[in-house]
Design a protein around this nucleic acid. Structure first.
Lengths: 327, 327
DNA sequence: CAAGATTCTGAAAAGGTTTGCAAACTCGAC
DNA sequence: GTCGAGTTTGCAAACCTTTTCAGAATCTTG
């Protein structure tokens, strides 16, 4: 029933080899045969069978994408970016959601690896050693994480944070708090590092609370602790945490930004929907996804000379959750 | 480099055919050979090449999934469900995001169709005729939409809405508004139909506003119109719209639920994060995804006797955005 | 117009698996 | 010990494509 290369060959009065060549390396066949083949292809609606092609070329034309949790509004943005860029290059993408389970990650990668040419690993939770082990088997690029010389795209928080701290400092804040996410999170370490550097440079005190679970509930739980530090402004590990704090502050009647200013990271859709709308450091999510595909394709193209790193910039979105420091 | 069925055959001292059979139809090979094969497979870490298998069986072991917009927090839930269920049956899933573009949908389906055994179409925006045309080429199941005899899983709003209207009625509401979503949306028509039926039965007046764009901004835009209807409670087409209204009400100083109660549909993550937390009709998102896979697999198994329909129930989540009717 | 160089095309092999068919074996019964 | 039925196994074809290699066609040049 499905139309094969032989059908096209017959229709065009040439051999299967010629059809293959006419499509893959057009300059190898004479112009008029090429035309006849093209017409036959169009007339019959022929599409090469990818399985058969994959069998011989060893390439699948597929990419794998692993994300920790699609329900976390940060990741869909990345997925869309990967998606879109992959499509431009005629790759399809296999998506897998690991449900935040580090143990599941390696297994899924190994599963996927048979069916794809390479894998984009977004914010993997597994250990460095596991990541390294995986890169032996399959071309892999990392998003939002850096381990050794594995190609990665990360976002540099320093620039955006300098803005943010400058913004707060100009509003009179002298003491800001940071509610860290999971210790194991690379992003968390990175954000903390950048925050220390930037606050020190700006002459602003930085205090840290205990690590929060990186979701709404984690923010709710951290809010009271933040108040106790005496800080007049607080950075949450991500928007979810920041919004959790917002909620708790509202419940306790703590004015935002009157008593305390709140800043998040990521700029997820929610951030402009809550009230007060959240000031946040926007991560270039789609761009991260797209860059990941670019790096992966480059890695496949020329495994000897991969692009090792791409660093994107975050930028500050000022909304309503930041204001002058309380006197 | 990769280990093939022949390597296993050699290691186990049997032919390739026997290896194949030992794995696919174990009861066709003698117990001890089966064991030897199994051991060889384990020792060598053999996994059948799916492309080669697909070439001969005509099956890919892949499923396709199309969603209108991953950034809409409703869909990730569905994706997770599809994902999880597919994995249980050893299917991998190709995900494509159509960016709410009805024109892109058909093209994507046709693209995907070569690489998958069947496709789950979630809330497709295309016309009925287009859907029907597609089902000729590829096994397809529909989520949140019904067209003709195409297998579909939908959720029945009536039960949940009876609860919701009962809830409001008990609180003294006599006049409720509905902010409809896009005219072309099947869910919208369905929700409206159910709402009419249920309000009529409960002796509650129903008024409708103009159609809203089904996102936050659409809700913001509809809010004032709702107030003008004199209703003391309002149903938004979905949570996003409802939350948009919440935001606009807050900006105008309209008390929720003091002056007006607000109810959404879907129960997306945001709904419990906004304040007041949103009362909403929860859709079984993951279950919808899982059921979709079940129907698709059944359709593949036995195309002559597909399950035509699966209807799930929504249920009311009462939170803080509903209260006694204003006097 | 012949010879050589070049361009274009076809035959055949290869890629890894499944499966129809036939050969080989096992076992019980006579 | 032989026959037959039933079980277990291997051979070879088939799935569809790409690619190597060599042969055919065309062109160039003397």
């Amino acid at each position: 029933m499905p139309v094969t290369i032989k059908d096209v060959a017959r229709a065009a009065g040439v051999s299967a080899s010629t059809v293959s060549r006419a499509l893959a390396s057009p300059d190898l066949v004479r112009a008029d045969t090429r035309l006849r083949v093209r017409q036959a292809v169009a007339a019959l609606g022929y599409h090469p069978n990818r399985a058969a092609r994959g069998l011989i070329t060893g390439r699948t034309g597929n990419l794998g994408l692993l994300v920790p949790d699609l329900a976390n509004p940060f990741f869909p943005g990345v997925v869309k970016g990967v998606q879109a860029r992959a499509r431009e290059f005629d790759y399809a993408v296999f998506l897998a959601d690991t449900d935040e389970d580090p143990a599941a990650e390696a297994g899924l990668v190994r599963n996927l690896s048979k069916q794809v040419d390479g894998i984009v690993l977004c914010s993997p939770r597994m250990s460095e050693d596991e990541v390294r082990a995986l890169t032996g088997d399959t071309p892999i690029v990392l998003l939002n994480r850096r381990v050794g010389r594995v190609p990665s795209v990360t976002v540099n928080s320093v620039g955006g944070l300098r803005h943010a701290v400058g913004h707060l400092s100009a509003l009179g804040h002298r003491r800001v708090a940071y509610v860290p996410g999971p210790k194991a999170s690379w992003s968390n370490r990175e954000r903390l590092r950048a925050l220390r550097q930037v606050t020190a440079a700006a002459g602003v005190d930085l205090v840290e609370t205990g690590n929060a679970v990186p979701n709404f509930a984690g923010g709710v739980a951290a809010a009271d602790q933040v108040l106790a530090t005496g800080a007049t402004a607080v950075f949450g590990y991500n928007d979810l945490v920041a919004i959790g704090m917002l909620s708790r502050f509202a419940a306790r009647g703590v004015a935002v930004p009157g008593r305390i200013s709140v800043v998040g990271f990521d700029d997820i859709v929610l951030s402009e929907m809550v009230s007060p709308a959240l000031t946040t450091l926007a991560q270039p999510k789609e761009q991260t996804g797209r860059a990941g595909v670019d790096l992966l394709l480059q890695l496949l193209e020329d495994p000897a000379h991969p692009i090792r790193r791409r660093e994107l910039e975050s930028h500050l979105m000022v909304r309503d959750s930041t204001g002058p420091a309380a006197a």
